[in-house]
Design a protein around this nucleic acid. Structure first.
Lengths: 342, 342
DNA sequence: TCCGGTTATGAAATCGTTTCCAGTCGGGTT
DNA sequence: AACCCGACTGGAAACGATTTCATAACCGGA
């Protein structure tokens, strides 16, 4: 395949390069005849601009980037999609940047800044830990979505999230109300992950309020994939048949756990109750449908975009809490064995 | 945040720009002391290269791109991951480019070519239709993964896939062997999509061979999401209670269908049998586990990469067929009502 | 006829890198 | 002492676009 530059096009069309550039960018100050001639040549050659050169030269005024950590996470990529949609209502252009789970958002932010002059960021799938001070040092407006930045002390970061602690507490309350006192919690490593930590605390709040003890051994750290959850659950339940309910920190994990229980001959919800988290499609269509906490995607997206645009115009940081919703499914039932006992 | 260029770094370190460049790119011909001094300044400033400028200048020799159409499709993104892994064994560097379902791969290919000199492509989630002649016109080595390019006449395109027609036929054979004669097929729009068309033909082959009629009304076109499949199924089964088995063209679709049936009071597999396609995690962990056709991800990935590298070195186009595998699940059982009849 | 004011156009500078090329500086050979 | 060679280094020319600025052409009005 031939490789054309704007100069080739200019030569073929018998005009100057600047004219071609003007045509390509839809500038008004080109005569109709010239425009047509250039357009024809461009089409004929299948010419496309070299983005590298373009971006190098055009230091765009300011725009915002949504950084999604983990492209396989449906919950996050749906959210990003929604944000893009909301962003249409603002004059600031938004773009989405997917990065891998392993690599860090700060490099990506820096990159986006000096390649394209990104002036603000929405962080999805991020967490707040010691490394977050980098966000502060960058000094650019940021919004943490689904993460609470209220106590972080980062001056340039807003956040929007549900009250994870209260949500987890409500979930546990419901399990307790169903008579479950032997509950296992399946989550991620909560050290250095404020989100998991908050949910854990919520669950503990509930247990404490009801005077129920929690054996730390019943907190299971798992990968957030079906296979990971399944394997963790198989291993865990080998030696923990006393458990009658599982609070999982994502719908995917809940699904994996349910399958594992099923294979062990334990029915959900008859023998064991299981709850999920996030409110994904998966929870709705799994059999049994999974009781879950819906994080209002649309609202979080809308608020995140709004908050970032506010800050870009000089507004102060703010933390917004949106309402979560407990979505009943078919995976929680009264505890039989407990009833017998009691 | 300050914005640094390589020139700033050079000035601060008291060296020339070319030296900084050499350090940044790990060239050997820099004295250790200089290297250290430059590195220090770079770290201190948090300097990152401007990729635009870099790519603009460095016309890399040749490398290959994997174009994935649809970033939400787990099956495809897993495959891409696997390809990247296989590619490490070759000297050609590979990169992955995700594009949206709506937009076309040809623009992306052109873009990648003249921005980065991509010399070859693997197309994932593509299909072969009239627009594919663009692939031919580009004239660069391409590999269609999970799509058969054998009869396409595109001189520069190899392909690797399972025998979709035979696979679909086997699935239908198994359903028939279980006594199901009233089968519905849930798939995508097969006009202009060779993959769906091939699977459809396979299913028809089987029916024909067994002398079973197929009512074209029983081919249901659906979106390939849980919600889409669920809704299609709800709608379809309102008026089609005679159906005792569903052949779905993806695991996701199968899951949505199973849920819909369940809500209509039809048990899988007792009342209706359902089969999926692809062999994803989902199929394995759904309840009931879904009978499916496993497309050997690793092998397809490995062959695709191999084929592309072959072509890059001047080899001829080839079409490779890899073995599929029918993975039994828990979603197919003998047809009760049919048994009663027969 | 001359002039101010559009309108359309091209030449040239610029963006931040890489890389070629030429040059400096020691130190070992003749 | 003259020479060469190797290891380092810096200057400057690209890369392919955009954008500023200057110029040419044209038009209507005085």
């Amino acid at each position: 395949m031939e490789i054309y530059t704007i100069r080739d096009i200019a030569r073929k069309a018998g005009v100057g390069v600047s004219t071609v550039s003007r045509v390509l960018n839809g500038r008004p100050d080109v005569s109709e005849t010239t425009r047509k001639r250039v357009t024809e040549v461009v089409e004929a050659c299948g010419f496309v601009q070299n983005r590298n050169a373009r971006n190098l030269k055009t230091t765009k005024p300011v725009f915002a980037a949504i950084i999604v950590r983990g492209r396989r996470n449906m919950f996050l990529s749906d959210m990003a999609e929604e944000m893009l949609h909301c962003a249409q209502g603002y004059k600031t252009p938004f773009i989405v940047k997917y990065i891998d789970e392993e690599d860090d958002e700060f490099g990506a932010m820096r990159q986006l800044w000096n390649e394209k002059r990104a002036g603000g960021f929405i962080l999805l799938g991020s967490r707040i830990d010691e490394r977050s001070e980098i966000v502060a040092s960058l000094g650019m407006p940021c919004v943490f979505a689904t993460v609470d930045a209220a106590g972080s002390g980062i001056a340039n970061a807003s956040s929007v999230c549900i009250d994870d602690r209260a949500a987890a507490r409500e979930v546990m309350d419901r399990l307790l109300a169903n008579g479950h006192t032997n509950v296992a919690v399946f989550g991620g490593n909560s050290e250095g992950n404020d989100v998991f930590a908050r949910r854990y605390q919520g669950a503990m709040d509930s247990l404490r309020a009801h005077g129920v003890d929690f054996n730390p051994e019943h907190y299971v750290v798992t990968r957030f994939t079906l296979t990971g959850a399944y394997e963790s659950a198989r291993r865990f339940f080998e030696g923990h048949r006393e458990i009658t309910a599982v609070l999982a920190m994502s719908d995917t994990v809940a699904a994996g756990v349910i399958r594992a229980l099923w294979e062990l001959g334990l029915r959900v919800p008859q023998d064991v109750s299981v709850t999920g988290y996030d409110g994904t499609e998966m929870a709705k269509y799994f059999i049994p449908a999974i009781d879950t906490v819906r994080q209002p995607t649309k609202e979080i997206a809308r608020e995140s975009v709004k908050l970032l645009c506010e800050m870009l115009e000089g507004g102060e940081r703010r933390d917004v809490t949106v309402a979560y919703e407990y979505v009943p499914g078919e995976s929680v039932a009264a505890c039989r064995s407990c009833a017998r006992e009691g």
